[in-house]
Structures are given as structure tokens and as C-alpha cells.
């Protein structure tokens, strides 16, 4: 009676570099998870709507354009507005250390920068889902 983990992988904003997002999507699926992929050029509103409709455990956001300080807080806020902030948010991309601190304070569960290994991301998801269930 274990939950099958469901994760939404999204690329919010206009950045079209999806190499990392696709690798993560594939790696998570090969770790036995169901990964919903929404494609490029998503607004935060669409990302959050999709996450709620799909009742995912977590949302992975990939942003390489530098718009992370606008887009990620917006996703967090919309989740809260929709009473869905039990869905955890993690992010990947080119995100400077200062911004990582700020985003984590806002509630982002983890941020993976270039060079992160998919095994670390898989472990992170497993750990976070386990913690959510205990709570």
C-alpha cells in the first residue's frame, strides 16, 4: 500500500534549455516515480494548477535564464493560495549562492546547481516524501 511517488517537472518562464529537466525527469521515472512533464514556457499559474490537478508530492522547477527570483517565489505563493503548500518545491539551474539562501528561506526544499547528480536528486525526493508522510 505504498504511494507511487508523483513529481511534476516544469520549466517556468521563457528559458528553453531543457537538457537538465529532461535528464531529471527520466532519472526519476527510472527510479520508479511517475513524472508529469509540462514542457517549455510555463507560467507559474499553469505549473501550480497542473501540480494540484495531478496531486503530486513535489514540483521540480528548472530555470537557467536568471528569472528564478521572480518565478520561484510566485510558484510558492500560488501553492499557498491554493492551500496546497504541502507540495514541496525543489529547483535546479544557474542560481547564485545568495539567491539559494533566500529561496530556501522562502520555503524551497532544495536547490540543485549544475553538476548535481541524479542519484542525489532521487535520494532527496525519497527523503522528502518520507518526511512528509511522517508529519
Amino acid at each position: 500500500m505504498n504511494r507511487r511517488i508523483r513529481i511534476l517537472i516544469a520549466k517556468p518562464g521563457l528559458d528553453g534549455h531543457d537538457r537538465g529537466a529532461k535528464i531529471v525527469a527520466r532519472a526519476l521515472s527510472e527510479a520508479g516515480m511517475e513524472v508529469i512533464y509540462t514542457g517549455l514556457h510555463q507560467t507559474p499559474e499553469r505549473v501550480v494548477s497542473a501540480a494540484v490537478q495531478e496531486s503530486v508530492d513535489g514540483i521540480g522547477l528548472s530555470i537557467l535564464s536568471g528569472a528564478h527570483m521572480t518565478l520561484i517565489p510566485k510558484v510558492l505563493k500560488l501553492l499557498k493560495d491554493k492551500n496546497s503548500d504541502d507540495i514541496f518545491v525543489f529547483a535546479g539551474g544557474i542560481i547564485p549562492a545568495n539567491d539559494i539562501l533566500k529561496l530556501k528561506e522562502m520555503g524551497v526544499a532544495e536547490i540543485f546547481t549544475p553538476g548535481a547528480e541524479t542519484t542525489d536528486i532521487i535520494d532527496f525526493v525519497h527523503r522528502t516524501v518520507a518526511r512528509e508522510i511522517r508529519q
Binding site: 521515472s29 513524472v35 514542457g39
Partner: peptide, 12 residues
Amino acid sequence: GGAILGDRIRMN
């Protein structure tokens, strides 16, 4: 047992 569900790409 995992899956990539990509149909939303065209409907989102």
C-alpha cells in the same frame, strides 16, 4: 514501474 507522463505538454 515509473513513467514519464508527457501528454500535458500539448494541453497545458
